[in-house]
Amino acid sequence: MFKKFDYYAPKTLAELFELTNENNEAQILAGGTDLLLKLREKTTPHKMLIDIKKLDNFRGIETKDGYLRMGALTTIREIQASKIIREKYTALYDAAKSFGCLEIRNRATIGGNIVHASPGAEFGTPLFVLAAEAEVIGPDGTRVIPIHEFWQDVYQVDLKDNEVLAAIRLPYYEKMVSRYHRLSRVKGMDLAIVGVSVLALDPANIEKREVKIAMGAVARIPFRNKEVETMLSGVKITNELLVSVKEKLSDSIAPRSSSLRAKPAYKKAMVGNLTEQALLELGLLEEGE
């Protein structure tokens, strides 16, 4: 049972901003699979929901001006089904595939997952390594913010009361591979205990190769380890190097000990192993050493 609230479904952007301007505490309703859960709790009174699903502005996956634009209302299922995402932005596809369950994926949206900004959010680490940008729209126009700046803290993103996340933009690179791996307690629907995304630009050209790594559910927000990225970029990735990479990754995180899903020691061990798995699948590990 939900707590009581009012509901509006604006049909134009003008209507939307009229509502957001007048109701600072209003919540934007997208897929609802995160927000509606909170409406069951006594602790968070909600007075008004503004459903943006009647607006066309936030839908669709399209290639535009050298980047891929996903409307904030793009469902996880649509991401999972997108050929270009599977082939080009594979980490995002991996995240979509392990997100919730089919019924949840049919409703949940990429925008909702990001704005909710949970530490273990499935799409956090893929978007961080893909250097995504958040396209935010408000009464005064559009802002574009790099994802790592947009994603400020636990449950906190850079959105003013009258602004709405409109889309996610992903830069396009000719040569780019990526994977996302996560662990969970059961094999069916479960939240991630820990997740890692690995991306490589120009993967076949060792000298020019650029590697990026982000870890999820290990800190307040998705965490990129730049030192390790430097260690892995432009060099052959040998097993020897991998050993020190794993150590560095492990040392770079201090997950909270109160997590119900896994203790810090396990997460610290797993970020390295998941990274190894992703590197292996991306063909970035030197063989026979």
Partner: peptide, 27 residues
């Protein structure tokens, strides 16, 4: 469960399966 986690409330919504406990009637 009322939380979208058990699946007992699954219905087809415009042809696709959803958790009807996490959809508002007005939606």
């Amino acid at each position: 469960c009322g939380n979208g986690e058990c699946g007992a409330c699954t219905v087809l919504f415009d042809g696709e399966p959803v958790r009807s406990c996490l959809v508002l009637a007005v939606e």
